[in-house]
Amino acid sequence: MGKKISFILNGVKREVYVEPNELLLNVLREKMGLTGTKYGCGIGECGACTVLLNGNPVLSCLTLAMDVDGKELVTIEGLAQEELQIIQRTFLEEGAVQCGFCTPGIIIMAKSLLKNKTNPTEEEIREYLKGNLCRCTGYVNIVKSIKRAAGKACKKC
């Protein structure tokens, strides 16, 4: 049965019963039906499960579901509310997506980076993303996408 927690998920207030040892990643995927957040390693090494908690990126595989009680959560599914985020658009245009498994986590991180720093240097981009692994792209077009998104006016970021 567990304990009832309530939080804002992608702009909507949600309530759910969770066990004390239940991880946010599992609650999102199994109880909320939001499978865009990925299980890659389960131990915080790959970054595929990254979500925004109160605007900051966290690894949902290392976050207890209980800890999001009363907070605001954004997953990849909730990122584009009315229109695509600039970073999503540049990902499409630059061919930054291959298998797409790391993509949600990387887009969430890029969004967070651009919110904190509107015009990061290439090295700052690389430093910020070093915890997100991608095995397909060699990161070339991912970095290109973020550089291009950074150059643009980013009011909503």
């Binding site: 199994e30 939001l34 499978t35 299980y39 990849i76 599914e77 999503q88 061919g95 949600p104």
Partner: peptide, 23 residues
């Protein structure tokens, strides 16, 4: 010619269903 990948949109939206997403 280079095109925008038609499968990329659902991936950037987190909507692509990998195997474990179909449980």
């Amino acid at each position: 010619r280079e095109i925008e990948r038609p499968d990329a949109f659902s991936k950037i939206m987190g909507l692509t269903k990998f195997t474990a997403d179909r449980l």
